[in-house]
Amino acid sequence: MSLAVEAPARPLLTGQRLAILALLALAFLGVPAFASPWTIEAILLPFLALSLAGLGLNLLTGYAGQVSLGSAAFMAVGAYAAFNIQLRLGLPLPLTFLFASTTAAAVGVIFGLPSLRLKGFYLAVSTLAAQFFLQWLFNKFGWFSNYSASGVISAPVLGFAGITFDSRESRYLLALTTVTLITIFVHRLVNGPARINLIAVRDNETAAKVIGVPVLRTKLAAFALSSAIIGIAGVLWSFTYLRTIEPEGFNLDRSFQILFIAIIGGLATLRGAFLGAGLIVVFPLLLSRGSAWIFDGGLDAGSVQLTQRIVLGATIVTFLILEPNGLSSILDRVTARVRSLMGRT
């Protein structure tokens, strides 16, 4: 609603909308036709899954103000739920997605319960309980991985209405469609009536309580929705990108990665998740290419990895110092500059 008082009849095609439509057309039509296999496998598939995870966390942290350090665990819940639903129930794809996200939402609510009493760092640390407990659970109980000897399971090929999502392009399109639909939903959510609830709880919990915003319900709903979205991100991560599922892939480092995506991209913005995920996916690739070029392959893989870690860590610190509102606000400034230049000519 954004309470656009006297909502002036906006033109259907603003510049921003045109840009988004062009981007979608490129993503849906251009990429499958022209992008190299490497671009899809190494960049776009992880980008889509991580963007969605970043989006889910942003809903919780950026909008509702509750910091979570356990996002990867909810990705794992989504992935294992989808695996077991496909394996044991054989439900069609949309229902698999629905139930996997519902499972993640339910687990999210359970681990969100401490937020009703805890704040700030106390809450952040308590979300680590989700990270360690769930990772342990999937490791320890063979049932989740169908008693696979190695603990690593290969994700079955998804299929629906006669289409199997086996080829690279079809997996890409499945991920893209999912991410697009969920992003539209979240866009409507955070610009609708829920916006007031979320931001009121984030900005001033006491005032929110006194004016009758249902603080506890808002927090739990934020945990549920955020976990559901991150759960779907986990499904995409393991079914369309890696095509394997293992608990190690959803460790604490992954949780931090998702947090960084949300922060570097810009909290409480939707495009921030995409910008942040783009950076996190592309940056290491650039670094390893760059170091290969500079050192002419003289750097061993281990050192490259350590260097990546250092540079990434430093980038985060630099961002926090210089651009606390993330890539999203840089984009804002750039478009404003471009517009004023275009307006002048």
């Binding site: 960084f260 260097t307 870690r309 250092i310 860590g313 610190v317 926090l320």
Partner: peptide, 21 residues
């Protein structure tokens, strides 16, 4: 405080990486 906390997360990566490098 949350911003500072995130900064120390980044810092942790720098120090860990640096120590091992």
């Amino acid at each position: 405080p949350m911003t500072l906390f995130m900064a120390t997360l980044g810092l942790a990566w720098v120090i860990e990486g640096g120590a091992q490098l």
